[in-house]
């Protein structure tokens, strides 16, 4: 399983175009890093600090008024992740079906569960490197630049929530992408379908919400659903109504993920090994 994931990551890192996307993710991380550095280390007037924080939607603490800064960072990184995954699905999974590499894997001393787990781990690793690890690094940076232990004591829940939210992003996105790639196989159909699935329902949900004033339509937006689930871990919601909506979002995302997983397992059939 580990070797399948390792090889998949090597494949991604060998394609130069993916470095552009990884660079975009890194640029965002550096930007947030600089913001934290500016507000903690530079001798700036307090209103200016607040302006900077507001501009970036960043709050290092749990905040009722604003989203938690680490979550905002992860959400913004998710856009990069979404684009990266849209183009890497074909390379990581589609090619195994297209070039009939599945026989190579499944005729070795592994079962299809190892293959599936390896591919999910590979995709999850990409998401982890772009969202969770930098968010934790930012948390550590803020804490390191703050004197005393109070920041760590008061905000111990943040890294736990970052890990939990990251876990949701990894699990959901990896299962969806690997399933989609196993069926569509080629880069263009995967990229188009992946983007459509993640963007179009959200737009539709927003339109229906505005037209009918029914907040439940917004559950059609998978990114927002994942953010709501993340907020369950961070424990803070902008509106009380969102707390109830988060459980619906969890049920919806879990259902789709289970269906996608079952479809994936059915697609990876060991009996196809020898033709």
């Amino acid at each position: 399983m580990i070797s399948i994931a390792r090889v998949a990551l090597i494949q991604v890192l060998r394609r130069k175009t993916y470095w552009v996307l990884l660079g975009m993710g890194l640029a965002q991380f550096i930007m947030f890093w600089s913001v934290i550095y500016a507000v903690t280390q530079l001798q700036l007037p307090e209103p200016m600090k607040q302006n900077i924080l507001r501009e970036f939607g960043f709050s290092a603490q749990m905040d009722e008024q604003r989203d938690n800064g680490y979550m905002v960072f992860m959400e913004r990184q998710s856009v990069v992740v979404m684009i990266l995954l849209a183009f890497s699905g074909s390379l990581l999974v589609g090619s195994d079906f297209r070039q009939r590499t599945l026989p190579f894997y499944l005729s070795r001393r592994i079962g299809k569960r190892h293959y599936v787990a390896g591919k999910l781990l590979a995709v999850s690793s990409l998401i982890l490197f772009l969202t969770v690890l930098p968010a934790l690094a930012l948390f550590v940076e803020y804490g390191a630049f703050t004197s005393g232990w109070s920041y760590w004591k008061e905000n111990w829940r943040i890294p736990v929530a970052v890990l939990a939210y990251g876990g949701v992003l990894c699990l959901v996105n990896s299962v969806w992408l690997v399933s989609l790639s196993a069926y569509l196989q080629r880069a263009a159909p995967i990229a188009i379908t992946w983007s459509s699935l993640l963007i179009m329902p959200g737009r539709l949900g927003e339109y229906l919400w505005k037209a009918s004033d029914n907040e439940y339509w917004r559950l059609l937006d998978p990114w927002r659903d994942m953010r709501l689930i993340g907020q369950l871990f961070f424990g803070k919601f902008r509106k009380d109504f969102d707390r109830g909506l988060a459980w619906w979002a969890l049920a919806l995302i879990a259902t789709i993920t289970i269906v996608a997983f079952v479809a994936l397992v059915r697609r990876v059939r060991a009996v196809d090994v020898v033709e």
């Binding site: 090889v7 090597i10 494949q11 060998r14 394609r15 390379l91 090619s95 195994d96 070039q99 009939r100 590499t101 026989p103 190579f104 005729s107 070795r108 001393r109 592994i110 079962g111 090994v273 020898v274 033709e275």
Partner: peptide
């Protein structure tokens, strides 16, 4: 699984891993 560990299988298809 145990059996496949004792057999070396060479598939007919290209079965390559890109890059």
């Amino acid at each position: 699984l145990q059996l496949r560990g004792r057999i070396g299988y060479m598939p007919e298809a290209a079965a390559t891993v890109p890059l």
